[in-house]
Design a protein around this nucleic acid. Structure first.
Lengths: 127, 127
DNA sequence: CCTTGACTTTGAGTAAACTCCAGATGTTAT
DNA sequence: ATAACATCTGGAGTTTACTCAAAGTCAAGG
């Protein structure tokens, strides 16, 4: 699969795909004899993985670290496990923050729905 | 309450507090005669609100827009309501993305826990 | 073979959100 | 009143994560 197709499949620009590879956030992609990227199934798995993780907010630094450990082979299982556990905790915390904020927004939204109906905004305390 | 105390209360730097005010992400803070910030209860409510929203990932641009609408008074109830609803949808989508990613991490973590025990990593397909 | 268009690399440029700094002014304790 | 310290403003600098551009290379159609 060429870079254009991968770009469209995952909704990410060609520049970004090359950038991710350049900085080592995905391992080197398979090439044709001419030097043009020809993504294999494994290459695609890596792309899918990092796109998913990036959308959730994991940092490029962490993801490149994970790839480095992967490339060092079987001695890094334990380190990779710790990295993954750590990032899971980051996401769990972030989800909690989002839940709190959604609750707050729900409260404000209900107030504003009243306000739009009645022309008056009534608060306990907030803005 | 002075800026140092507010900084400590919300775990955000003094520079950031001044920055948020400068760009209009919070309305102008009450000052002493000498020109030094003296946060009132309302000022603190604004700080708390934007800190919460920023931690959840809402953009500075959106938050300043909300403050601008707030400052324009009662004619903007409907616009503020739409803004809040839109941002809620953004957060719901982001939460979904995080949940998906946590599930993926859980799967990988379980595999790596096996791998650390057995010394061998077994995949269906992934890295 | 030649053109046209996609792909390549390297390096510079950009946007968002801070973060730091210098020099001035305010505040507090002696 | 003066030292010592906090806070002020305006502007420059930093970090993260892309995004764009230039100049060259590869591949497919005529």
């Amino acid at each position: 699969m060429n870079i254009k197709e991968v770009s469209e499949k995952y909704g990410i620009s060609q520049d970004t795909l090359r950038y991710y590879e350049r900085i080592g956030m995905i391992p080197p992609v398979t090439r044709t004899k001419g030097g043009i990227r020809n993504y294999s199934i494994e290459d695609l798995n890596w792309v899918e993985l990092v796109v998913c993780m990036r959308k959730a907010g994991l940092s490029i630094e962490i993801l490149t670290q994970y790839v480095k450990l992967y490339q060092q082979g079987d001695e890094t299982f334990a380190e990779r496990l710790e990295l993954l556990k750590g990032q899971k905790q980051v996401l769990v915390a972030q989800r909690q923050q989002i839940d709190d904020t959604i609750n707050r927004l729900d409260y404000k939204i209900s107030r504003y729905e009243q306000a739009v109906k009645t022309g008056r905004l009534v608060w306990d305390k907030e803005d």
